[in-house]
């Protein structure tokens, strides 16, 4: 007992310092984000004093066609790129799990390139590629590039789930009369759903947040929100804060969904299972 009493005050001192350090770190992380959101509602142009609540910067944002379009393009491309890359990435991962070692190693190797390369290198490569083919830069080039850098993340997130599956599962399904497509949709996909969902979410946020690659491959007036912020940043313009807040709000919503939905799905599943067991 006495010993414990001797140790406790010492520990407390250390933990106060630790707590303060963590607090300072969190302030550092979140201050710019909070600053952007708060000052997007400011009623003056000031960078430092909040003089009153107003929605004027949002009004200005919605009156600015380029800004509204950039929001539309960002969401459209993120949604389309997520759908395509999740579909292709999942099928590829399933195929890879049944492929021989050489193909597997080769695809994984190529897959790593967009992840490991600095974004600027990927960006200039695609820029030269599209220009050489004389493809008009704009929505399509943006979408293709986003699909290109999203698929590797989907494959990376689905592969471990497939690896943990029983390799005979598929044979069993086929022996019992499933067609290959049924075997995939009814047997394999339900087992790897969590991998697919997290792959899709990574793809969505990667596409939604991308600036560097988009900046190099876009053209003919098609801009996403990041490019918009970058090109307008030369002058003080609180509408940028409003636009930034749109990005922050959407990503935060996605993060909340990620962290709550699995719990909800789990609950629904438990309830359903219970019902089944009582029947």
């Amino acid at each position: 007992m006495k010993n414990e009493n001797n140790i406790k005050p010492k520990k407390k001192k250390g933990s106060t310092i630790r707590r303060l350090y963590i607090l300072a770190m969190l302030v550092f992380f979140y201050m710019p984000i909070v600053y952007t959101v708060v000052f997007s509602f400011n009623n003056s142009k000031s960078l430092s004093t909040f003089s009153g609540f107003s929605l004027q910067w949002y009004q200005k944002m919605f009156h600015n066609k380029d800004m509204v379009h950039s929001i539309f393009y960002t969401i459209a491309i993120a949604v389309l790129a997520t759908i395509v890359s999740t579909f292709v990435g999942t099928l590829t991962a399933i195929g890879l799990s049944k492929s021989n070692r050489i193909i597997k190693a080769a695809v994984e190797q190529i897959n790593d390139m967009p992840i490991m390369n600095p974004d600027i290198v990927t960006g200039i490569g695609l820029l030269m590629f599209f220009s050489t083919l004389a493809v008009k830069k704009g929505f399509m080039t943006l979408l293709l590039s986003h699909i290109m850098f999203c698929i590797p993340y989907v494959i990376l997130s689905v592969m471990p789930k497939l690896r943990s599956l029983d390799p005979n599962l598929l044979d069993a399904a086929l022996d019992l009369g499933c067609t290959p497509i049924q075997a995939i949709t009814k047997v394999i996909v339900p087992q790897i759903t969590s991998g697919i969902v997290s792959g899709a979410l990574i793809a969505f946020t990667m596409s939604f947040d991308d600036f560097v690659i988009s900046y190099f491959v876009t053209g003919s007036g098609v801009n996403n929100i990041s490019i918009m912020v970058y090109t307008m940043s030369k002058r003080v313009n609180p509408s940028i804060n409003a636009l930034s807040t749109v990005i922050i709000a959407i990503i935060t919503a996605v993060l909340v969904v990620i962290n709550t939905v699995p719990v909800i799905i789990e609950k629904i599943r438990n309830i359903k299972n219970k019902r089944r067991s009582t029947i």
């Binding site: 992380f29 710019p32 952007t36 912020v229 970058y230 930034s244 990005i247 990503i251």
Partner: peptide, 22 residues
Amino acid sequence: PTWINMLVRTYAWRGMLDNKGL
């Protein structure tokens, strides 16, 4: 924070580091 757009968060520092900034 790493999930929130890097460019947006970097831009926020402009307002905070400005001569008349926060």
